[in-house]
């Protein structure tokens, strides 16, 4: 058979399947190897990132315990958080007393969901700090929520006390136009970044409305580190 005739001949099916099989096997091994090799470091990174944000929103914190608040009260997180229950972090100071609670909230901002972590202390029944977990807001405009001092001053003692029936917040947390804040539960928006500021307000409000009624009645259970 001359070379030309050989070139016209199609590749046998078995050869194609064999090649694809070999390539897939080799690639599968590489991927699993990379996953296994980096798993510990990735988990450690994720834990550190969460811890760093929690320590930022509750400066007195020295250690963190993960809890879940559901229909059955408060339990430490073991494995997956069941549907309907809300995860939060209890932060303890050096002597093992509860320094505050940190919880996640999210709301649609200008570009994408703004996900934040906020710190709550039961003593003043207020939000004492916020940190951004992820956002894709416009650089130089929306991302000022991380740096703008006047805006962050909103979250030094933002009133989130519960109403008399303990079914929700006494006053809805809300972002108001720049310079018009009058109440302790209002968030003074950044001029020019109102949409992002509102997202932060809504994220705190939605999360606090859902979490605090489940959490506050049982808070004595977690007052000291177990």
């Amino acid at each position: 058979m001359n070379t030309q005739a050989m070139e016209i001949q199609a590749t046998p099916t078995a050869a194609m399947i064999r090649t694809l099989g070999i390539v897939s096997t080799v690639c599968g091994l590489i991927i699993v190897g990379a996953f296994q090799g980096t798993y510990t470091a990735v988990q450690e990174n994720k834990r550190l990132a969460t811890e760093r944000t929690v320590f930022k929103v509750i400066p007195a914190a020295k250690s963190i315990v993960e809890y879940q608040a559901g229909a059955g009260g408060i339990q430490p997180v073991a494995g997956e958080v069941p549907a309907g229950a809300l995860k939060f972090y209890a932060a303890y100071d050096g002597s093992g007393r509860l320094a505050g609670i940190a919880a996640e909230g999210g709301a649609k901002g200008y570009a994408d969901t703004v996900r934040i972590l906020y710190g709550y202390t039961p003593d003043c029944r207020c939000v004492v700090g916020i940190g951004v977990i992820s956002m894709r807001e416009t650089p130089g405009i929306g991302d000022k929520i991380v740096t703008d001092k006047d805006f962050l001053a909103n979250f030094v003692s933002l009133d989130v006390q519960l109403n008399a029936e303990l079914s929700g917040l006494a006053h809805e947390v809300k972002a108001v136009k720049h310079g018009t804040k009058t109440k302790a539960w209002e968030v003074d928006a950044i001029a020019g970044a109102t949409i992002t500021s509102r997202a932060v307000g809504r994220a705190i409000n939605d999360s606090a409305q859902a979490l605090l009624p489940k959490l506050v009645p049982h808070i004595d259970k977690i007052r000291s580190k177990s």
């Binding site: 590749t11 194609m16 090649t19």
Partner: peptide, 14 residues
């Protein structure tokens, strides 16, 4: 060893 019929698929997997 890569047959030309499945080369794109192979490259993408790699």
């Amino acid at each position: 060893v890569i047959p030309k019929e499945v080369r794109i698929a192979t490259y993408i997997v790699i």
